[in-house]
């Protein structure tokens, strides 16, 4: 009766996609929680568009190699992150219009570059294609998750302090910039590693939506991280089932599921939700 739940995962390529997305679901949302706390949500947008020209250049030089496209994406992502950081310092935190300019430029350049390569389906690149999750893509996702979690554990405490009070960090240690940079590298790795399965425009969704939703469920940092991982895993499973049964690309399906969970959290979560605001105070 519930065949539509299990049937997708009887297929090898769906199980691969599931394994990869679950790995990413464990690694990416904690980074998203920090992006939200640092008021850098817009940064994730900039990155997802910013990696596209790099991926395109990788494809132009090495064809449809996941590694070449991945390396191109990481290089472009880091470049974009550094330029964005420089803009933030130059404008004193009022960089949003310039960031918008940057990601529009990057998206246009990426799409133009990819259009010169007739072997690449633009829709797959932007929105994901579970059929394309080969060994390289799967190892990429699992490998990035394996690197991200211990790295985040190591920089956790300085990163918390730097996110809460960058001025204090600067005054007492002066190395706040280093932790910030390591953190941005992890974000770039997670965004890029998801591009095969989820598409460059959608892989940020798995990072940000569960993180934003988690704010409505816990008032502790560790609690928000746990909730965000749980929501991301649910989104991955639910999204892949949706993708298979409705024949829509995996990226939008997973992000739609994550978005649905966010709306539910926003409406009914115990902290700061619409339902909570409407209820009489106890």
């Amino acid at each position: 009766m519930l065949d539509f739940l299990w049937e997708p995962f009887a297929l090898g390529f769906m199980r691969r996609a599931l394994a990869g997305c679950l790995a990413l679901s464990v690694a990416a949302p904690p980074l998203g929680v920090f992006l939200v706390l640092r008021r850098m949500s817009l940064m994730s947008d900039v990155l997802q568009h910013g990696v596209l020209p790099g991926i395109a250049i990788g494809a132009i030089f090495a064809g449809l190699s996941v590694w070449a496209m991945g390396i191109g994406g990481v290089v472009a992502g880091l470049a974009v992150a550094l330029v964005a950081g420089w803009l933030a310092r130059r404008t004193g935190g009022r960089e949003d219009s310039q960031l918008a300019g940057m990601y529009l430029l990057a998206l246009a350049a990426g799409v133009a570059l990819i259009s010169t390569q007739h072997s690449i389906d633009l829709t797959h690149l932007l929105f994901g294609n579970v059929l394309a999750v080969d060994d390289a893509a799967l190892f990429g996702m699992a490998g990035v998750a394996t690197v991200t979690l211990p790295a985040l554990a190591l920089i956790w405490r300085p990163l918390v302090l730097e996110s809460l009070d960058p001025g204090f960090m600067a005054a007492t240690s002066g190395r706040g910039g280093l932790w910030h940079l390591v953190f941005l590298m992890l974000v770039v790795l997670c965004v890029v590693s998801g591009f095969v399965a989820l598409g460059t425009l959608m892989s940020v969704g798995l990072m940000m939506l569960p993180a934003i939703a988690a704010r409505h469920w816990s008032d502790s940092l560790a609690g928000q991280v746990r909730v965000s991982v749980l929501l991301a895993c649910l989104s991955s499973v639910g999204g892949l089932i949706l993708s298979y049964n409705l024949d829509i690309p995996a990226g939008p399906a997973i992000v739609l599921t994550a978005g649905g969970l966010w709306v539910v959290s926003l409406l009914t979560g115990p902290l700061g939700s619409v339902w909570r605001a409407a209820a009489p105070r106890a």
């Binding site: 706390l37 190591l154 920089i155 405490r157 300085p158 918390v160 302090l161 809460l164 204090f168 007492t172 240690s173 704010r215 816990s218 008032d219 502790s220 940092l221 609690g223 928000q224």
Partner: peptide, 17 residues
């Protein structure tokens, strides 16, 4: 999302990984 004692404890030593 951080507790009072964490804010204070985080500053009690020069932080590193």
């Amino acid at each position: 999302p951080i507790t009072c004692s964490d804010v204070v404890a985080l500053a009690s030593t020069r932080l590193g990984p």
